[in-house]
Amino acid sequence: MIYLLLFWDFLKIGFFTVGGGLATLPFLYELAGRYDWFTEAQVADMVAVAECTPGPLAINMATYAGVQAGGIPGGIIATLALALPSLLVSLLVCTVLARWAKGNSIQRIFAGIRPAVAGLISSIAISMVLLAILGINSLGQSIAFDYKALIFFLLLLPAVFLLKKHPILYVAVGAVVGILFRI
C-alpha cells in the first residue's frame, strides 16, 4: 500500500516540477507534513545528500525520500515514478516538434530565445563563481572568501578553455584539490 502511495505522490511531483531539481522541495515538505514517512528536518538532509551524489538533484532526493519511507523498494518506486512524467511529456514534445520545427515562426522564436538562454547561463556562471570563490550566496551574504579557491579557479579556467578534456576530469581534480588543500 505504501508503494502505491509513493508511486502516486512522486508521479505527481514529476509532473509538476518545472525548471530544475530544487523545484521539488516544496512538494517534499508537503509530503513530510502529510505522512510520517520522514520529517521536515530530513528533507534538509536530502538536499545535502543530493548535492554530494551524482545525477539530477530531484532523482537523488526522490531515491533518498523513498528509502526513508519504504526501504530499498520504496526508493526504486519513488525514483521511477518521478522520472516517468519527464519521459512521457518529452516524447509528446518530440512528436509535436517534428511537425513544427521547420516553420518560419519557430525559427524566429528560437532566434529570440538563444541569446536569452546565453544570458541565463551567464548569470548562473557568475553566481557559481561568486559562490565557489568569494563564498557569496544567492542572498548576497558573504560566507567566507577563500584565496585557495581563487588560485585554483584561475589555474583551472585556461585549462578548461584550451585543453577540452572530459569534464569529469576537472570534477575529479576539483575533489582531490579540495581535500588536499582544504578549500
Binding site: V117, I121, M128, G174, G178
Partner: peptide, 28 residues
C-alpha cells in the same frame, strides 16, 4: 566530503563559464 564538494564547486564554476561563453558565441 565538504572539502571535496568545495573543490568540485570551483571546477563546475569554471566548466559553466566555458559553456556560457560557447552559448554567447552561437547565440549573440
Amino acid at each position: 566530503v565538504q572539502h571535496a564538494l568545495a573543490g568540485i564547486r570551483v571546477s563546475v564554476a569554471a566548466l559553466v563559464v566555458n559553456t556560457a561563453w560557447r552559448m554567447i558565441k552561437s547565440g549573440v
